[in-house]
C-alpha cells in the first residue's frame, strides 16, 4: 500500500506539468490582449506594442512556454499579476485557504449529514421518513444556491440580526456560507447513499446474513454499510473537486475573497499569470484529493486494496511455504 501511495504521489508531477502546458496553450490562443486591457481603451498602438514587448508577449510560442515552465516548476516563482504588483502566490494562498475551508467543511457535512439521511431513508423505504428525506433532497438539489443564500441572509441577517450579512472575519460569518454550500452536496449524497443502500440491502450477501439470524444492527453496520459506502467515497471526492472551483456563487453572495472570484475576475481581464497559477494550484490540490479518495477506497474495499498491492501476493507466498513444508 505504501508503495502504491508513493507511486501515485510521483505521478502527480507529470499530471500537473501537462495541465500547465495545456492551460498555457489554451490561453495563448484565446482572443484578447492583456497589454491592451491593462492600458485601456484607446491606448496608442505603439504603447501597446511596447508593453507587449516588455511582457514578453511577442516571443514565439515555445519560448514563452519554456520561460513559463522554467519559472513555475524550477524556480517556483508564480510571478505577479498583470494588473498589480501583488505576488500571485501570496494572493492565492490567502484566498485558497478560504475556498478550502468552504470545500472541506462541505465534504464533512455532506458525509455526516447526507449518508445517515440516505441510510435512514433506505431502511425505512416507502415510509414517511423516506418521503420526507427525499423531498428535502429534491429541494436541496433544485434550489439555486444564490437564491437560498439570499433568502437565508434576509431571514437571519436582516430580520433576526443573528448573523453578519457579509464577510467571514468572525466565525458567525462562516455559518451561512458553509450551510448553503453544503446543501446540494448533502442532497446528492443522501440520494446516492439511499440508492446504494437499497441496492446493497437487496443483495444476496445481506440475505445470507439474515439467514444466519444475525440481528438487524449487525447486518446494517457490518454487511450493508461498508459495501454501500464504496460508491459514496467516489462521490465525496468528486464533490470536493468540483466545489474547489465552483464556490464562485457562494463567494460572491457572502463576499468571501476566495479562489473562485479571483479566477473569474482574472479570466475577464485576461490576467494570464493569475489564471495559469490558479489552475496549476487547483490541479495539484485536486490530484491530492483524488489520491486520498483512492486510498480511502483501498481501506474500505479489500478487492481494491488487493488491486493496489498486486494480486494475491500474500497467497502466493503462503502457497510456497506450504509446498516447502510439505516437501520437508
Amino acid at each position: 500500500m505504501a508503495q502504491y501511495v508513493l507511486k501515485r504521489i510521483l505521478m502527480i508531477i507529470p499530471v500537473v506539468f501537462l495541465v500547465a502546458i495545456t492551460i498555457f496553450t489554451i490561453m495563448y490562443f484565446c482572443p484578447g490582449d492583456p497589454a491592451e486591457i491593462i492600458l485601456g481603451v484607446g491606448a496608442a498602438a505603439e504603447d501597446i506594442e511596447a508593453l507587449r514587448e516588455q511582457m514578453g508577449l511577442n516571443d514565439p510560442f515555445l519560448v514563452q512556454l519554456g520561460n513559463y515552465l522554467y519559472r513555475t516548476f524550477i524556480k517556483f516563482d508564480f510571478g505577479t499579476s498583470y494588473a498589480n504588483s501583488v505576488p500571485i502566490i501570496d494572493e492565492l494562498s490567502h484566498r485558497f485557504s478560504k475556498t478550502f475551508v468552504l470545500a472541506i467543511s462541505a465534504i464533512i457535512i455532506e458525509v455526516i449529514v447526507g449518508i445517515p439521511l440516505g441510510m435512514v431513508s433506505a431502511t425505512h423505504r416507502g415510509g414517511w421518513i423516506d418521503q420526507l428525506c427525499m423531498i428535502l433532497a429534491l429541494i436541496g438539489i433544485s434550489v439555486p444556491s444564490f437564491w437560498i443564500g439570499l433568502q437565508l441572509l434576509l431571514i437571519f441577517s436582516l430580520k433576526l440580526s443573528w448573523l453578519p450579512p457579509y464577510g467571514v472575519t468572525t466565525w458567525q460569518g462562516w455559518i451561512l456560507p458553509i450551510f448553503v454550500n453544503s446543501l446540494r452536496g448533502i442532497a446528492q449524497m443522501a440520494r446516492q447513499a439511499r440508492s446504494s443502500m437499497l441496492e446493497v440491502i437487496r443483495s444476496d450477501y445481506v440475505t445470507t446474513a439474515r439467514a444466519k439470524g444475525l440481528p438487524e444492527r449487525t447486518i446494517l453496520f457490518r454487511y450493508a454499510l461498508p459495501n454501500a459506502l464504496i460508491p459514496l467515497v467516489q462521490t465525496a471526492g468528486q464533490s470536493f473537486g468540483t466545489s474547489l472551483g465552483g464556490t464562485v456563487i457562494i463567494e460572491n453572495v457572502f463576499s468571501i475573497p476566495g479562489v473562485g472570484q479571483y479566477m473569474v475576475n482574472a479570466i475577464v481581464t485576461r490576467d494570464y499569470a493569475v489564471i495559469r497559477s490558479a489552475v496549476v494550484v487547483l490541479a495539484i490540490v485536486f490530484s491530492l484529493v483524488m489520491l486520498l479518495v483512492d486510498i480511502a477506497f483501498g481501506f474500505i474495499d479489500p478487492r481494491i486494496k488487493a488491486q493496489y498491492e498486486g494480486r494475491n501476493r500474500k497467497y502466493k507466498w503462503r502457497k510456497k511455504l506450504r509446498r516447502v513444508a510439505a516437501n520437508a
Binding site: 434576509l154 436582516l158 450579512p165 457579509y166 463567494e251 453572495v253 472570484q261
Partner: peptide, 18 residues
C-alpha cells in the same frame, strides 16, 4: 470600508445598518 461583492447583500447591509 466593507467589501461586499453581491449587490443584494449590499442592500441588506444598508438596511441592517451594517
Amino acid at each position: 470600508y466593507e467589501i461586499i461583492t453581491d449587490p443584494t447583500t449590499m442592500t441588506i447591509a444598508l438596511e441592517s445598518g451594517d
